[in-house]
């Protein structure tokens, strides 16, 4: 079926089967390969993109569900976090990095909107400290173990 998506600010029309994931549509049909496939079952976060500013795991999203939504992938991101990550060495092999970045941007917005996390005491959303960042970013795995650097970079831009 034919669907229209807005991706990184431009309108795209795609012919997709209803079972095709947003991740596969992005990578295989639109050539937006910055979004990665690490598990294809929502366990690793490498495929995280933003839909109307909210983070989603695109491997668990059907492309047809996102008709009319504004999708932002790493190719459309221009955020101080990217340079902060390099300075803090919050990456090694780089495979999880696009997902970490998109997830962090979505997470910062959630925090700004007052969304509590599992470690927020009494649901009083306060400063975004390291414990909060770690909890909120736990859906994004990094096997190289660059977590300290990622947290440091996020803290810097959340500042």
């Amino acid at each position: 079926m034919e669907i229209s998506l807005r991706i990184n600010g431009s309108a795209e029309t795609l012919e997709v089967q209803p079972q095709v994931s947003l991740l596969d549509a992005l990578r295989d049909q639109l050539g937006l390969t910055g979004t990665k496939k690490g598990c294809d079952q929502g366990a690793c976060g490498a495929c995280t993109v933003l839909s109307d500013g909210a983070r989603i795991t695109s491997c668990l999203a059907l492309a047809v569900q996102y008709e009319g939504h504004e999708i932002t992938t790493i190719e459309g991101v221009d955020h101080p976090l990217q340079e902060a990550l390099v300075r803090a060495d919050g990456l090694q092999c780089g495979y999880c990095t696009p997902g970490q970045i998109c997830s962090a941007i979505g997470m910062l917005a959630e925090h700004k909107e007052g969304m509590a996390s599992a470690v927020t005491e009494d649901d009083e959303v306060d400063e975004l400290d390291e414990e909060e960042i770690r909890e909120r970013m736990s859906g994004n795995l990094c096997r190289c173990g660059a977590y300290n650097g990622i947290v440091e970079a996020i803290k810097e831009v959340a500042g």
Binding site: R27, G31, L32, T33, G34, T35, K36, K37, T73, I74, E75, V77, Q82, E83, L85, V86, R87, D89, L91, G94, Y95, T97, P98, I101
Partner: peptide, 21 residues
């Protein structure tokens, strides 16, 4: 020093094997 491929890896420009067509 910052790693030289940092920008490539934080912008989605790094092309991994499965992405070659």
């Amino acid at each position: 020093l910052d790693r030289v491929d940092g920008k490539t890896k934080t912008t989605g420009a790094a092309e991994f094997a499965a992405e070659h067509t």
